[in-house]
Design a binder for these strands. Sequence first.
RNA 1: GGAGAGGUGGCCGAGUGGCCGAAGGCAGCAGUUUGCUAAACUGCCGUAGGGGGAAACUUCUACCGAGGGUUCAAAUCCCUCCCUCUCCGCCA
Length: 428
Amino acid sequence: MYDLRYLRDNFDTIRHQLGRRGADVPWDRLRTLIEQRRALAGQVEQLRHELKKGSDEVAKLKREKQPADAPMVAMKAIGEQIKTIEVELRTVEETLTDLNLRIPNLPHASVPVGNDAGDNKEARQWGSPPLLTTPAKSHWELGEALGILDFDRAAKVTGARFAVMMGVGARLERALINYMLDVHTTQHGYREVLPPFLVNRSSMTATGQLPKFEEDLFRLRDEDYFLIPTAEVPVTNLHRDETLNENALPIRYAAYTPCFRREAGSYGKDTKGLVRLHQFNKVELVSLARPDQSYEELERLTGHAESILQGLELHYRVVALCTGDMGFSAAKTYDIEVWLPSQNHYREISSCSNFEGFQARRAGIRYKGAAGKKDAKTEPIHTLNGSGLAVGRTLVAILENYQQPDGSITIPKVLRDYMGGMERIKKE
RNA sequence: GGAGAGGUGGCCGAGUGGCCGAAGGCAGCAGUUUGCUAAACUGCCGUAGGGGGAAACUUCUACCGAGGGUUCAAAUCCCUCCCUCUCCGCCA
């Protein structure tokens, strides 16, 4: 969503730049609506001014016990005129707002131009693939053989794209959650949050999931509530409609939540294993930052996510998404991709984005300069978030990268305290 | 789920149809007084959008939980919804 004045003043520039994202925006209609809204609003304002003056006149006459019929009749006519124009105005505004909510964010100047994932740019790599002496087995083969993953029973209990973790597998998932939260809260300065897993429509609209992507969400039948697809939604919305003090920024939160996604349109992709599920666990990092510091913050936040993979000693690379591959709300995104031996390629395990003021405008999150400062103005903050990390995919990476010839799994050193000192996962 | 009470500016709190964008108080800011602290006194002190001005500023409009309605005129009357609180029931 764009500030209407900004959109009006920079219409052609924005139109041009969004062309590179392949955004399907009805530009001409949008321009017409903006002008119509402006004209109608002006008319209403002027008529209302007349009405107000007339009503004051009536009040004055009545106080003086004078007849007031003439102005009352005249004002009634104006009142009706206002009502007519307002109906028109409301229609225009509704259409305009709906269109506006469906315009994607503007990419930052540093984002590589491109059409799809093939045009993404690798920023850096860390570590190296493990040296396996036997052909790499997939995590689902390993996990099912060890008795820690069960997809058949998950399908029975719920359906496709769900998983059950059992025994040491369940504990490993829990260990990862705790490890990630501990690192981010004690080493990186994030405040831990445990938010609701269901949110309302306003929250989903504020962070950009709605109105455009409703088919990707699970929705309750009897309430207008949605299951969160990421903790980004409840956590960013903590400060919806708030004006924050500049001194308080940046505000950093780390939240563990399960995430629920319909995965509409991904039939046939990643049908096996833990990689693409309707429900998965994630530790999310969210930051609210001053606009002039948000790109520094994006680098920092991405580094915080990377540090988890470094602690786990997993090989990964970081790529800057190109204009065509970025999400709807993002101005710039880095994906962190972990190495998966069984697939012999990198797989997204974290996505770190700066949304600039895009979500903040929708959410009404603003900040104010420190009191006493002369040029203190109130404007949207910048919001950022990134996975730190997707827990299920991290478990996948551990199983595959730490697999032994006998099918057992070595537990990364940093997790052993969380696993009661256990060093290896063997068949139970 | 049943019964009741409420939602007004950063906070507290007046205001049941007409100079109410909203009394009063607290907090905050600027200043005066004062040996310091404190106190007292004076002034300022909501947000958003449009117009005018280089700017301090000025003017118009909207906003008293949200959305409709009645009326010449709504914080005030009516309807719907949301939220909070109390009691009962149920429940982890």
